[in-house]
Design a protein around this nucleic acid. Structure first.
Length: 518
RNA sequence: UCCACCGUAGCUCAAUUGGCAGAGCAGCCGGCUGUUAACCGGCUGGUUCCUGGUUCGAGUCCAGGCGGUGGAGCCA
């Protein structure tokens, strides 16, 4: 029962102690979006308010009743504090930081929804409660009741509102907290990731991530894509066998999926436009700011789709994700210190650049002695046919205001299933989307090979196990069509939008090379 | 796998040519009515990553190992 009372089926009467409590009750009723019916009676047995309700959402204040069925101040999330100025409310959370000045204590409190300051003043709180408040340590859990007031000096998210504490209940006094409000090393923070998540910065990043994921699903669901998820335990590689995590499948070797794409290709023949979304696994020995062993990827796949249509889908999709996040997570991005001016420009169309032209740009830049951040090392030359290194990606991306598509990579440098350009088979109908500001490749996609003979030849050329791909080849026997798809890495996208330096902060519990705890 | 750098208090870091192991923060005690990583006074806190070597003497020099960070390759 969401009101936090005993859960009994009968409706609790609300005592009408005073005008203030009555207003609090009304207030909590009014903020609930779900239908609520209120009856007042003047006679039975004394003046009472009866509340009829159902389905109260957790997002809003709930009516707070004590054991006697009497109204208590409503329990609110900190994010709603601005709606309760002048009213007495209860907030449940954790102490981020405590500062003070004699008879005055400032408690920075977070509850997951937001951060604000609670002010404990000895003359109004009383000596006993004030002494209790002074005992609070960092990360102690508390239930605070007091009046919300507006004050421009009050810090927080959203700032400008604070609580004048009238009552407090200590749930637990926290042990000395290892993470101090100062700089820490990476190893220490990753060892304490379970606690590090409580920091302002990590809180903001995970809230952005949730919005990015919501935007991904909403856009695809609203554009005719069906979510059909693909297996994580798989019998064969998606793209080569060196980077797979092998597991024991009841005596048979199996692998954690590094892509859902091959299954996506089966699904389009049943559902037309599909996407899968989940964790993928790469056992690469990569220790860079852009790599995780386990990361989340959304992979749309579309039947009857050529490369040019795919690029239009991608630019609409990525723009929507960025613009919606800017709109809904402005406070979090501000907390992270993100300069959003570059992100505001992320709207279709994105520039398109052929691999050939990218190589020419790199040659000219290398000849001119251009250097690339972060170390300002000279741009290395790039022989035609090789894939870009990180400095090449950074340089190309830096030449454009928006994300840029690089298309028509050399066929030999790309995965076996990519369709060669019919006019020029040494390049394929592929496209990578490079994010600005050095965040690298955020999507990779292509038109897929639809001809069964050519696909079989490609599998043999790569030396892949033919029998593992029998069903994949089979797809091309029954109504094969041109089709295309791409994958977008969630952590790289979140890192780019939030402006963080390393993808490991974009996921709650990152799996990086050499680390499996916590 | 390769390259570079790093390892000293719970954390971030000092320690001169090889010569007494130090500070700030956190924690504890006391003070302060508007703090924003407050401030003031006091206290507590050490296997200097490990093993061996050189030396009268090693945090410091040498050898080997372990751990970490960044990058390369590869990738989203």
């Amino acid at each position: 029962m969401p009101f936090g009372s005993s859960g009994q089926a009968s409706l609790p009467p609300v005592a009408q102690h005073d005008e203030h409590l009555r207003q609090s009750a009304w207030r909590s009723i009014c903020v609930n979006l779900r239908p609520i019916f209120v009856v007042t009676t003047k006679h039975f047995p004394s003046p009472r308010v009866f509340v009829v309700y159902y389905g109260v959402t957790n997002r809003h204040a709930s009516l707070n009743l004590n054991h006697h069925g009497e109204t208590m101040p409503p329990i609110i999330p900190i994010s709603d504090a601005k709606d309760y100025v002048g009213q007495v409310v209860t907030v449940r959370g954790w102490i981020k930081r405590k500062t003070g000045k004699g008879k005055l204590l400032f408690l920075r409190v977070r509850d997951g929804s937001g951060i604000f300051q609670a002010v404990a003043f000895r003359p109004t709180l009383g000596d006993e409660l004030f002494a209790r408040a002074k005992k609070l340590t960092t990360e102690s859990s508390v239930i605070l009741t007091g009046e919300i007031r507006e004050d421009s000096r009050a810090p927080g998210v959203p700032g400008g509102y604070e609580m004048d504490v009238r009552d407090l209940e200590i749930v637990q006094i926290a042990a000395p907290y290892p993470i101090a409000p100062k700089e820490h090393g990476v190893e220490f923070l990753l060892d304490h990731r379970h606690l590090w998540l409580r920091s302002d910065r990590q809180w903001a990043i995970q809230r952005v991530r949730a919005t990015v994921i919501r935007a991904i699903r909403d856009w695809l669901d609203d554009h005719g894509f069906l979510n059909v998820d693909t297996p994580i335990l798989t019998p064969a590689a998606g793209e080569g066998t060196t980077t797979l995590f092998e597991i024991d499948y009841h005596g048979t070797p199996a692998y954690l999926a590094q892509t859902g794409q091959l299954y996506n290709e089966a699904n389009i023949f049943a559902f037309g436009k599909v996407y899968c979304f989940g964790p993928t696994f790469r056992a690469e020995k990569s220790k860079t700011r852009r790599h995780l062993q386990e990361f989340w990827m959304v992979e749309p796949e579309i039947a009857f789709c050529h490369l040019d249509e795919l690029l239009e889908i991608e630019e609409q999709f990525v723009s929507y994700i960025v613009q919606r996040t800017l709109r809904e997570r402005a406070e979090e991005l501000a907390l992270l210190g993100r300069d959003t001016s570059r992100l505001e420009q992320v709207v279709p169309p994105f520039p398109r650049l052929r691999y050939d032209d990218a190589v020419s740009m790199i040659h000219e830049a290398a000849a001119a002695g251009v250097t690339v951040p972060p170390k300002d090392e000279p741009l290395p030359p790039l022989p035609w046919g090789e894939d870009f290194g990180a400095p090449h990606e950074t340089y190309i991306a830096s030449q454009f205001e928006k994300p840029v598509f690089v298309t028509h990579y050399p066929t030999a440098a790309k995965a076996f299933y990519m369709e060669p350009d019919p006019e020029r088979p040494e390049v394929c109908l592929s496209a990578d989307l490079l994010a600005p500001e050095g965040y690298g490749e955020i999507t990779g996609g292509s038109e897929r090979m639809s001809d069964p003979e050519k696909l079989l030849a490609a599998i043999r050329r790569e030396g892949l196990p033919e029998d593992a791909f029998d069903w994949y080849l089979d797809l091309r026997q029954y109504g094969s069509v041109p089709h295309s798809g791409f994958g977008l890495g969630v952590e790289r996208t979140v890192a780019w939008i939030t402006g963080i330096k390393n993808v490991r902060e974009a996921i709650a519990f990152p799996r990086v090379l050499g680390r499996i705890r916590p």
